[in-house]
Design a protein around this nucleic acid. Structure first.
Lengths: 237, 237
DNA sequence: GGCGGTTCTTGATCTGTATCAACCGGCAAA
DNA sequence: TTTGCCGGTTGATACAGATCAAGAACCGCC
């Protein structure tokens, strides 16, 4: 799951000052509740590629991403990997339906999260219908995104997949950091491939093709959307 | 969304007697609440292939499937279709995050649903944390299934897809109607293809291959799992 | 029971993407 | 500065599954 919510650092700034608050579930909380939540979470940092939680591990905690990017993925027994999503600041992770996580989550670059014990978090939300409704709404939104991604994986060509990914990723970043046609890509080509159901070579070739067609400019660690309209057209059809 | 819940027919049997109740959200409701819910819903019948609601239509209602099977799908502008799921009795449909449905839903064979107006349903669940928690839990479960399906669409071969589909579908039917190795397939080959991200020809060929290998027996409208163990092995790898 | 339409199956061929393999460029350790 | 490594790109080839085309089976209807 990837839901916006935030909690304070008992040793740092209070929740209300959290940079993430404006994207978060916090909107559904009043000052007193925010202060209560503050005391429930602990900030933790992860280095690049460290695993925050792994598929099939017990779900003991819920995490709120404060800083950085994470990849969420499932592995098949033979090692094939499908990335089910990338998490950005404000996303809530680890709300599993069962006792074990159904996917793994690890850091792409340095990451800061706020960790809550599952039980204390559950107790906190237990009797707050406004919060439950908000969490529910965000879960439904995420489900809807998952369905969109199914369409992409099942029915779109490599070029459509890449164009759709770039636009979608840009839009999420625009939400957080404001408009820009330069799209940072902190994840590797392999990550992109495993997200889009392609191989790394196909992703690379498609990037090159889009660059040749003057739709994007490729820079180390990012891509520039030179012709967003044409990219939209590729993604739509 | 596909969530288990049930409501009574004002002109028929009360909710508590509904055949679906045991699979449903009802577990979270007491007698009085069940009776209240009863008065909110209306039973409606649909013939085969009729549309219950369409992509981009306004979300005015929430539906609880009582009887029959439905296909839930998204269409691309050029007509490509991805089925995002099949609904069975007990599933709740139409809880969209936005004001419009993000997918279409239509009947496979005759269908009976219980329809609630969105607003009265929202009012009903509004201040019932136990119900909200249950709905939330079921939404999360559905999200998890969607992620499993992403793995299937992005990373599995045709044979793995078909084997996984047959086993998953059987398991859902076993939940509802008890154990059996005969798996009714009310949906067409085209539906299966659009669910698995394949063409109808590939689905047909894969069925034939599984039959040649004595893994399944093909019957009109159903399939018999002759060697479930081998099917599991295909699906797992 | 025969007819027309639809769905399903099968066959032949094509193609988009995977696979295999080599190479390039940047960066860090020696 | 050289060396090795890693991530990314590019090229050659293979193949799974798509596409195109033709039957075969089934089903409702007269």
């Amino acid at each position: 799951m990837r839901i916006s919510l935030v909690a304070g650092d008992p040793n740092g700034q209070p929740c209300a000052d959290c940079a993430i608050c404006r994207f978060s579930i916090c909107a559904a909380l009043d000052k007193a509740e925010l202060r209560e939540l503050e005391h429930l979470g602990r900030h933790i940092h992860f280095a690049s590629c460290e695993t925050v939680f792994g598929q099939d591990e017990m779900t003991t905690s819920v995490y709120n991403l404060l800083e950085g990017v994470m990849r969420l993925y499932k592995l098949l027994p033979d090692g094939r990997r499908q990335i089910v999503g990338f998490a950005l600041p404000g996303d809530l992770l680890g709300m599993a339906a069962s006792a074990r996580h159904s996917f793994s989550a690890d850091a792409i670059g340095a990451v800061a999260v706020c960790r809550f014990s599952k039980t204390s978090f559950a107790r906190f939300i237990e009797d707050k219908p406004h919060l439950l409704r908000r969490i529910n709404e965000l879960t439904i939104r995420e489900l809807s995104q998952a369905q969109d991604h199914m369409v992409l994986l099942g029915r779109r060509s490599a070029e459509e997949k890449v164009a759709t990914f770039l636009l979608g990723w840009r839009d999420r970043l625009v939400q957080l950091r404001g408009p820009s046609n330069t799209v940072p890509l902190p994840m590797s080509r392999q990550d992109i491939a495993d997200f889009l159901g392609l191989t790394i070579e196909t992703v690379s070739r498609t990037f090159t093709k889009l660059e040749r067609d003057r739709v994007i400019g490729i820079q180390p660690g990012s891509v520039c959307l030179l012709d967003p309209a044409r990219a939209e057209a590729m993604a739509a059809a």
